[in-house]
């Protein structure tokens, strides 16, 4: 127990990295998800095909493979481009940024499916009604589409967020000092790997419970105006 106390600042720093990484990745994922959903719903065949390819690849390839490919491959590719064009000298990819790009890229694909489904659930008549009362496109989006998009997308979003948080554990493999990495290091140093890995597990469990309750409260807020059939 005194070992845990001694290492607690080190562990808390790891938790900070995990939380920061999750938040940055979810922002990127939402942005990519909205883009992907817009592409899938757009009239352009090319946009639809590219977005479809994006989802298919991400669904087919395990996240750790994507992460390692982006981290090691991306680094070499950047430096090859740099050497060829002479635009920049040797750069080392930051693990945090590589993690955010990889996780954001992966979950952007899942988010795009969530947003597409949510958009399609909005009754057409609502949008037509908005147009008929003379709303501009911006007003229509913020007053009619966005509140309903959030409502229909929230359950899927909650799922994606819970999975995303757990996926961030993989960044310890590329050496980012998150809770798993720091917990592992502390466990090795003190020869108490079980204690410290169990703490890491509990940290994730607490994060899951907190987000679960928080997002469910948000879901209730956004479904206030809905009368449930059953």
């Amino acid at each position: 127990m005194e070992n845990v106390m001694a290492y607690s600042p080190f562990l808390i720093r790891g938790v900070g990295v995990t939380v920061a990484l999750s938040l940055c990745s979810i922002l990127l994922a939402v942005a990519l998800g909205l883009l992907g959903a817009a592409a899938k719903l757009s009239g352009s065949g090319w946009a639809r095909r590219i977005a479809g390819l994006y989802t298919t690849i991400v669904r087919g390839v395990p996240d750790l493979v994507v992460m390692l490919l982006l981290y090691f491959g991306g680094q070499v590719l950047l430096n090859q481009i740099g050497a060829m064009t002479g635009w920049w000298k040797y750069i080392e990819l930051n693990q945090f940024i590589a993690g955010v790009i990889a996780i954001g890229f992966i979950f952007g694909a899942y988010m795009s499916e969530t947003f597409r489904g949510a958009y399609m659930s909005i009754p057409k008549g609502m949008i037509e009604a908005g147009i008929s009362v003379g709303m501009t496109r911006t007003t229509l989006f913020w007053r009619v589409i966005w509140p309903q998009l959030v409502r229909y997308a929230l359950p899927g979003f909650t799922n994606n967020w819970l999975t995303l948080m757990k996926t961030t554990a993989l960044v310890s493999v590329i050496g980012l000092e998150d809770i798993v990495y720091n917990g592992f290091a502390a466990g090795r140093a003190t020869r108490e790997p079980f204690t410290f890995m169990l703490i890491a597990l509990l940290v994730y469990l607490i994060l899951t419970i907190l987000s679960d309750t928080g997002l469910r409260a948000l879901e209730r807020r956004y479904t206030r105006g809905v009368v449930r059939g059953v």
Binding site: K166, T167, A169, S172, V173, V180, P193, L201, Y204, I209
Partner: peptide, 11 residues
């Protein structure tokens, strides 16, 4: 379901 498999495997 609430914890990462990587950490479960490490445990």
């Amino acid at each position: 379901r609430g914890t990462p498999l990587l950490v479960q495997l490490y445990v």
